[in-house]
Design a protein around this nucleic acid. Structure first.
Length: 581
RNA sequence: UCCUCGGUAGCUCAAUGGUAGAGCAUGCGGCUGUUAACCGCAGGGUUGUAGGUUCGAGUCCUACCCGGGGAGCCA
């Protein structure tokens, strides 16, 4: 017996039409195709199957095509078409005779459509494919409009660009009535045709389809959560698994990727090393906010020490550990050896923050530069931001145009202005004076020594400067222990970059490189000096002035896109009470 | 955690304490090289949950749950 067995990856029956002239089953290695008569009906993706050639047997693994496995609403319509497919062996009573009896043809390619290499829609629309050439695209239906002249216009999207491509499917297609005319938003299709100049308005080229294969149906178009209409962002968050199919989230996703690539390119071009600082930290001295505990202790049976406290010595790491709130202290170690370094990874803050600019899990970029002071630090941040925005304008013009049209009118203008304008530097002391004399009354009074409230930051960035502004040299009382003491003894070399609509996008400082001053600050703040032994070692062995900053990646995406809420710019946002998906 | 607004059809929203509606979406029909198409018809509801007031509650009261916006914290 010629038995072909043990395909571990998923495979798929590639045709579901009753009219199909053939059924092909493909695996990563090869494809098996057989003829099937017009009454055969197939749906579902199969995996882990075995194929026996002689006698014809069909072992189905994890997903078995049965009446029950059919989507509910379709079941009634289609059940009559589905013959009995039992678990394990296809019985002789199942399926069309021609299928059972026909020899399986081995190898690539009996179905012409499956031979052609698919093209991304971005390539098809971008002029890389010549008009008149054969083309194959794979994607999902956005909309379908019918013309009773015997045509359907199908917008197909594959994520490669903002625009979908228009597929023109005529009623001469064998599955036109049975399938093409029933396509709805979200259906997955595999289209072969000719790239032609469009006869209609709205697009220059389109595909005249010679074949439209439905790879995956939408089970119940009536309740498909991402119907072609306007949805609120709040609603889309509840269907976060499907929201990448929308224009906005798709565009945000491409811009986010563009920004991430630009960040790495920026640093790479300047000789920075990307340092993978730990996600799990045993350092309890990061002090940047409430932390998520990491533990393997049984919550129902927590070991206690004799004095009644949690006995972390029995925990996985033998000590209390948490998810990182910043890679800064770790990356400083590498900075003082490799000179120019940065981190770019996930960060976790267990704060009950319900605002449009906070997440419990977010990505942060933290460069650290040796032999550098605060101004060089601020300049680096400015350059990085400008580099990233330039990349977005150049690489994602299509998505940015959409943001201007639907999300934020000034999205492009704002980035262009940012790029063209030198970053405004403002001393904290001067900022306070501006706030005190601006004639505006604030809910929170302004005075030297107080931290800037959101309303103050907004005034400075949105009304006074009307653009991003770096505020430098804050009072030491409101900043972290590691920031470098200025000569005045009152302020530290800290800087925050405030952006309109977002507030603080960058927070950084020159680090205190003098051991005696560092120790004094640790003591002043009542911190346990023993916890900082390795951090202090950096000041004992070849210390140099150095500086760095943290840039909230999602805030960067928010600023670039003009999207209002940070929860829209990360695929699966986490905030207090929300970790579905 | 605090302040504030809200929860009604798949989605967005209406509805003096008195018969729960519209637009979009979906299905069917018509029309059309269409493109947020258009025209007609249809299906679709335990009004967030649990109590209470009332002859009568989507509407008023109480508690809770969920969501938005703002604040704090920060990136």
């Amino acid at each position: 017996m010629n038995r072909l067995a043990g395909f571990s990856m998923s495979s798929r029956i590639r045709s579901r039409s009753w009219n199909a002239s053939e059924v092909s089953v493909s695996s990563p290695d090869s494809r098996y195709t057989t003829a099937a008569d017009s009454s055969s009906s197939w749906t579902s993706t199969l995996s882990c199957f075995q194929f026996a050639i002689d006698p014809p047997m069909f072992h189905v693994g994890s997903q078995c095509l049965t009446r029950e496995s059919l989507p509910s609403q379709r079941a009634s319509r289609e059940a009559s078409r589905v013959s009995v497919l039992s678990w394990g062996v296809v019985r002789s009573g199942w399926g069309p005779a021609s299928f059972r009896d026909s020899p399986f043809r081995l190898g690539m390619g009996t179905a012409g459509s499956n031979d052609m290499k698919p093209t991304s829609i971005a390539h098809a629309l971008g002029g890389q494919v010549g008009v008149g050439s054969e083309i194959r695209i794979q994607g999902w239906v956005r909309t379908r409009r019918d013309s009773k002249a015997g045509l359907s216009f199908i917008h197909v999207h594959d994520g490669s660009s903002f625009d979908p491509i228009q597929v023109v499917a005529g009623n001469s297609l064998a599955n036109y009535e049975s399938e093409v005319a029933k396509l709805s938003a979200g259906c997955a299709v595999d289209v072969v045709g000719t790239l032609v100049e469009s006869q209609g308005k709205g697009q220059s080229t389109e595909i005249q389809a010679s074949s439209v294969e439905v790879v995956g149906w939408v089970e119940d178009p009536d309740t498909y959560p991402v119907s072609p209409k306007r949805h609120t962002f709040e609603y889309l968050r509840e269907v976060a698994h499907l929201r990448p199919r929308t224009n906005t989230i798709g565009a945000v996703t491409r811009v986010r990727n563009c920004l991430a690539q630009a960040v790495h390119r920026f640093f790479h071009e300047r000789g920075f090393y990307w340092i993978h600082t730990p996600i799990v930290t045993g350092s309890d001295c990061e002090g940047a906010g409430d932390m998520f505990r990491v533990s393997t202790l049984d919550l129902c049976n927590i070991p206690k020490t004799p004095d009644g406290k949690v006995d972390y010595s029995q925990d996985f790491f033998g000590k209390e550990t948490n998810l990182t709130v910043s890679g800064q202290l770790n990356v400083e170690c590498y900075c003082l050896a490799l000179s120019k370094v940065y981190t770019f990874g996930p960060t976790f803050r267990a704060e009950n923050s319900y605002t449009a600019r906070h997440l419990a899990e977010f990505w942060m970029i933290e460069p650290e530069i040796a032999f550098a002071d605060l101004d060089q630090d601020a300049d680096l941040a400015d350059e990085l931001l400008k580099y990233c925005f330039r990349a977005v304008l150049e690489e994602r013009a299509d998505d940015m145009a959409f943001f201007v049209e639907r999300i934020e009118k000034t999205a492009i203008e704002r980035l262009e202005k940012f790029i063209a304008t030198p970053l405004t530097h403002l001393d904290y002391t001067d900022a306070i004076e501006i706030l005190e004399t601006c004639g505006k009354t604030f809910e929170f009074p302004v005075h030297w020594g107080a931290d800037l409230q959101t309303e103050h930051e907004r005034f400075l960035a949105e009304e006074h400067v009307k653009g991003p502004v770096a505020i430098k040299n804050y009072p030491k009382e409101i900043k972290a222990f590691y920031m470098r003491m200025n000569d005045d003894g009152k302020t530290v070399a800290a800087m925050d970059i405030l952006a309109p609509g977002i507030g603080e996008i960058v927070g950084g400082s020159q680090r205190e490189e003098r051991l005696d001053r560092l120790d004094a600050r640790i003591a002043e703040l009542g911190l346990n000096i023993d916890d900082y032994w390795w951090y202090r070692d950096l000041r004992r062995y070849g210390t140099v002035p150095h500086a760095g900053f943290g840039l909230g990646f999602e805030r960067l995406v928010v600023y670039a896109t003009g999207v209002q809420n940070i929860r829209e710019v990360i695929p699966f946002p986490r905030w207090a009470g929300n970790a579905t998906f």
